[in-house]
Design a protein around this nucleic acid. Structure first.
Lengths: 221, 221
DNA sequence: AATTTATTGTTAATTTTAGAACAATTATTG
DNA sequence: CAATAATTGTTCTAAAATTAACAATAAATT
């Protein structure tokens, strides 16, 4: 079963919240609690649960551990996926550090840069290689997802190297919109768009809205 | 006229693309060209133009300069808005540097941190102040938008300080979901959700989709 | 100048997404 | 143990967003 994209995003958000609850010792959660924490309605939570085929203990709420497991079995890949970060500037470092051990099924196994200061060193717990080694290492390390955090002028050429060497999904944080072959899933996020949106609604509403920034679906139509 | 949130996001994306085209000397663009560059359909571009009340020169495409101006007059604030970045780690530095001069109507006027190594120095072109000065400086500098890039444990307290001191919009890059008063526009972005979405569609489609990561609308319902 | 071609603006249809409503179920209370 | 209250699962409805379709227009071609 393929879940709607919006549902996949929400499942990921639910899990983030649930892991947080779990770490605080909470064992069960009601639909309206999860909804409030995620700025959505309880109905939507229940509909998502239904879509997942997940049931609660009536009147006790959802079992948090079970739900985390259920979400994992739907959105994770059993054997995990290997991820590379291309470009170890501030953003690349932030992304790499951010992930550190957060998701067992997604492993950042390498970072790449051109700067000899960085190459060979360990950044955010992950070794940095020279970009020249990309083709070789992408295959050798079986990397299927690439995160692009390079300066704009390198975005397209790096993306090409990625897709030419077996990468099946790209998360593009550069300002350059990419065009990918059909078999590559592309997700792009531009923080300027996020802040311009905030600015627009600050200007026009004087606030009064709540919004979750999601990466734009850049899939082939 | 208040534009739909999705349209606002797209207008911002259009402008990013148009500015790039302009810098390459291009003067006009067809709806299908703009659509391809933004991974959407030409119909959607034309509908957005209609919503904006913007017209092209028939058969010549849209005048890029005019269109940039039209988008600006809709989504920018004439006098500009002041922005602060809270938390000068890798992510905060990335955000600050990323913005440098990119949008004349959005000015990052200050950054804040607790680290005495950073306080008093200029980071990414912007002066860093100690967090203790937040209440005073938020008012003094008339900051209306805050970007949160602090460690998760500080997210809620910082958000509170922001809203208590006149901030009307928050872009939350921490992993902590926030709850804001109704008059504050909140936009949240979690990169883990983005990459989990990529992973899901890599696993299930073997690619074949295109997606733009947008910040989730966290507005009050 | 007539014909063809390309492109837009707009209406109508479709699809996707979210919400309201409510019966069913089970804990809790008296 | 009956009554009450709380919560879910689900269907039906509504709203939002996207796409399809096509007449209108203007450039290009003959």
């Amino acid at each position: 079963m393929i879940l709607p994209e919006k549902t996949v995003s929400r499942l990921s958000e639910y899990r983030r919240i649930l892991l947080d609850c779990l770490s605080k010792g909470q064992t069960h959660i009601f639909s309206h609690e999860l909804a409030n924490l995620n700025h959505i309605t309880a109905v939507q939570v229940r509909r998502d649960m239904m879509l997942m085929g997940f049931s609660s203990m009536q009147r006790k709420g959802y079992d948090i551990k079970e739900l985390i497991g259920a979400i994992g079995s739907l959105i994770d890949t059993p054997d995990g996926l290997n991820v590379a970060v291309i470009g170890v500037g501030n953003f690349g470092k932030a992304v790499t550090g951010y992930f550190r051990g957060k998701r067992s099924k997604l492993n950042i196994v390498a970072t790449f840069d051109v700067d000899s200061e960085k190459v060979g060193r360990v950044v955010g717990g992950v070794k940095c290689y020279h970009v020249d080694n990309l083709p070789k290492l992408l295959k050798k390390l079986k990397i299927s997802i690439g995160i692009l955090t390079v300066p704009p002028e390198y975005a397209r050429s790096m993306a090409e190297i990625l897709t030419d060497n077996g990468v099946k999904g790209i998360l593009n944080f550069t300002t350059v919109p990419l065009n990918m072959p059909d078999h590559v899933f592309l997700e792009e996020y531009d923080m300027i768009t996020s802040i311009e949106k905030v600015a627009y609604f600050v200007k026009n509403h004087g606030g009064g809205k709540k919004s979750f920034s999601k990466a734009t679906d850049a899939s082939k139509q």
